[in-house]
């Protein structure tokens, strides 16, 4: 299989501070890759490279090659809107828009120029089904998204990301603000989505990484310490630091 995301010798700086050091990694399609590591290790910065969300921060500079779906996404002339359509994102805290449930999902379509009302409503329903939220919200699509619980809001945000048919979904600690039951639902969902999407997930929760991911990458102080099969990493880590982190000796 050819990797869908490849990074070669990637360095990322916030002004003088180097947040990522020479990262080489390849992510295969239809897999779930977990990025783990202690706070400040660079895993979120790494995740945000793939849809160029780091561009929004002042003083960021990036070197190295980042290839998504066969394209060098930091080349000049790259259509960022097109890239972000391909690479959806779910954030740490549920962040629905101050709009109705329906309009939250329709948003991505509307800003991308879709006006066909029938298509939009079909897409909304389909995305909500995909995010396993349809049965809970089908009677209140016209209600504000803020009326949903935190877990429902997060699944709404996943549905919102799915609506524009990305091939990759980035998840930045998607369950860290949720209760255990909602977390379980999100994890189930990730497992379901793997069939159609490539998922990269940042998590602080070791068990979660172990449960949902096929591959795990351990970051420490901006370096990629170890990357491999999740089972392998959790049962037989090659690096001492990985072992210490996984067994909870620091982090």
């Amino acid at each position: 299989m050819t990797p869908i995301i490849t990074t070669r010798f990637v360095n990322l700086f916030y002004n003088e501070f180097q947040a990522l050091k020479n990262i080489n990694m390849a992510i295969l399609p239809h897999t779930v890759t977990a990025l783990i590591g202690p706070s400040g290790c660079g895993k979120s910065s790494y995740l945000r490279l793939f849809n160029r969300m780091n561009d929004l921060i002042d003083g960021v500079s990036i070197t190295g090659d980042i290839m998504v779906d066969g394209e060098m996404i930091y080349n000049k002339g790259i259509d960022i809107v097109e890239l972000r359509r391909k690479v959806g994102m779910v954030f740490q805290k549920p962040n629905p828009f101050p709009k109705t449930i329906f309009e939250n999902i329709a948003y991505g379509l509307r800003v991308n120029g879709v006006t066909d009302a029938k298509f939009i409503s079909e897409k909304v329903e389909f995305s909500l089904h995909q995010a396993a939220l349809w049965d809970e919200v089908k009677d209140k699509l016209k209600k504000s998204a803020f009326e949903l619980s935190g877990g429902q809001q997060q699944r709404l945000c996943i549905a919102r990301a799915l609506a524009i048919e990305p091939s990759i979904i980035l998840m930045d600690e998607p369950a860290s603000a949720l209760d255990p039951i909602s977390t379980a639902k999100i994890e189930e969902l990730i497992y379901e989505l793997k069939r159609n999407y490539t998922i990269v997930i940042v998590t602080h929760n070791m068990q979660q990484a172990g449960r949902v991911s096929d591959h795990t990458a351990f970051f420490y102080l901006g370096e990629l310490i170890e990357f491999g099969d999740t089972k392998e990493i959790f049962t037989n880590p090659k690096d001492k630091k990985t072992q210490n982190y996984i067994t909870g000796r620091f982090g």
Binding site: L56, V81, N95, G108, N112, R160
Partner: peptide, 25 residues
């Protein structure tokens, strides 16, 4: 910030984000 990022991550440009998310909020 998360709300604006969510909008941008969905492929909205700056103006769409201002017009559809920031001003309504």
């Amino acid at each position: 910030k998360e709300m604006k990022e969510a909008s941008l991550a969905l492929g909205a440009n700056k103006w769409q984000t201002i017009h559809r998310v920031v001003i309504p909020f």
